[in-house]
Amino acid sequence: MQRVNMIMAESPGLITICLLGYLLSAECTVFLDHENANKILNRPKRYNSGKLEEFVQGNLERECMEEKCSFEEAREVFENTERTTEFWKQYVDGDQCESNPCLNGGSCKDDINSYECWCPFGFEGKNCELDVTCNIKNGRCEQFCKNSADNKVVCSCTEGYRLAENQKSCEPAVPFPCGRVSVSQTSKLTRAETVFPDVDYVNSTEAETILDNITQSTQSFNDFTRVVGGEDAKPGQFPWQVVLNGKVDAFCGGSIVNEKWIVTAAHCVETGVKITVVAGEHNIEETEHTEQKRNVIRIIPHHNYNAAINKYNHDIALLELDEPLVLNSYVTPICIADKEYTNIFLKFGSGYVSGWGRVFHKGRSALVLQYLRVPLVDRATCLRSTKFTIYNNMFCAGFHEGGRDSCQGDSGGPHVTEVEGTSFLTGIISWGEECAMKGKYGIYTKVSRYVNWIKEKTKLT
């Protein structure tokens, strides 16, 4: 034993070699072989497995989906700052455009905790909710729209109204504003409101030439003092309507412009014939205590009207009353817009006519005020429907199939267009061939041609 100890002390290297040989010859039971080890760690190889990531292109799944990435790591994937920024906006807080917040056709661009709407022409605001041009839906104005110097929408209202708090709607500024039905039992019968379409306001006024200088022999019209197929109006439903009495009662109609003036057809009036105007009328054979009678003290036909040349060209006249009318729910003026808007309103496509005229061709006159909704007829169809001249200051309205029309005794009465609950004068009943005849239409004086003249002559002093 002493000898062994001496050998170990003198030859430590020998001992180490012996131990190493023993270990190498022993069977290893701690580690699995290569094949079995792979069965336990069965993990798919990654895209760049075996390579240094710093030297390969980034992978979106590896960089940002398996674990949260930084902007720089995302930049490695896209290799483009702009594309990385677009991805980053949604990656950080989701897609803010998912709810489609942009209105009126706006395009949404996502941002971090926010979004941006790219608005089409005519709109602005956070969600493109603000109209900035009158060309689109009248700028959301209830009545009139004008573009300011910086191309912003400025709404306005006709006389007797003021802008509401929203700067879009119009509200009454006087007790009985024009064009409004205020009798409670008839307010439910107000005709369907007309909503502004998209309009090209630059070209809204037709490029028409008034044929002022045409000389033409007097034409022989049949029954051209021209509501057939209409309905009984309720008291106060058309408070701007008046009836004219002269040699015979209810020979023509008219509309209240203001307390002192009536507008009617020029062919209705004769110099030297006494005319009485009755406002607030409903049943011409009954006294309903809503009527107001006034005498006409002055007749002003349009300066281009000449019955000797043509009885229905420039067929418009103004009547001055001896005493002002007292405005109330049964006696209310009709609204008159400017030339541009009167023309736009007419193009809405349908209007209402009213009167006490004959209820059928050569038949009896109506006792109760009649009204009828009539569609506008395109000019080409209008011209083809008659052998008589249709001037540019006239328009056609009615039904091709016949059966409904204005008729004798309705002449001078109103053709009105309702705009968001307020009625505007767009025409004056003038003439036609018979009444409600198939293929024939009622012919009306186009008020847009005469609004400046009306307003100039009827100013209240």
Rank of each mutant, 00 (worst) to 15 (best):
Q2N: 11
Q2L: 15
G13P: 09
I15A: 06
T16N: 04
L19N: 02
G21H: 08
Y22D: 02
T29P: 02
F31M: 15
L32T: 08
N38R: 11
P44K: 04
G50M: 10
K51G: 13
E54N: 05
F55L: 15
E61C: 03
R62M: 10
M65D: 14
E66Y: 05
E66H: 05
E67N: 09
F71S: 11
R83V: 11
Q90D: 12
Y91F: 09
V92T: 06
D93E: 07
D95Q: 09
C97P: 01
P101I: 03
N104G: 02
S107Y: 05
E116Y: 02
F123H: 06
E124R: 03
E129C: 01
L130S: 12
D131A: 04
T133C: 03
N135T: 14
I136E: 09
K137C: 04
R140L: 14
C141W: 00
C145G: 02
N147V: 10
K152P: 07
C155V: 00
C155L: 01
C157N: 00
E159M: 07
E159N: 07
Q167T: 09
A173E: 09
V174Q: 09
P175M: 12
G179Q: 01
S187D: 12
L189G: 10
T194C: 05
V195A: 15
D198V: 11
V202Y: 12
N203K: 10
E208C: 07
T209S: 13
D212T: 15
Q216K: 05
N222A: 14
V227S: 14
V228M: 06
V248L: 14
D249I: 06
S255D: 01
K260V: 04
H267K: 06
T271A: 09
G272V: 09
V273C: 06
G280K: 02
N283F: 10
E288M: 06
I299Q: 07
I300G: 01
A308E: 09
A308D: 13
N310F: 04
Y312I: 09
D322W: 02
I336S: 00
K339I: 07
E340M: 08
Y341S: 10
L346V: 06
Y352F: 14
R364K: 15
A366C: 05
V368E: 10
R373V: 06
D378S: 09
R379Q: 10
A380D: 13
F388G: 08
T389L: 10
T389M: 07
I390M: 07
F395P: 01
F399C: 06
Q408D: 13
G421S: 05
T426E: 00
I428P: 00
S430A: 09
G432R: 14
E433D: 14
E434M: 12
T445S: 04
S448R: 02
S448P: 02
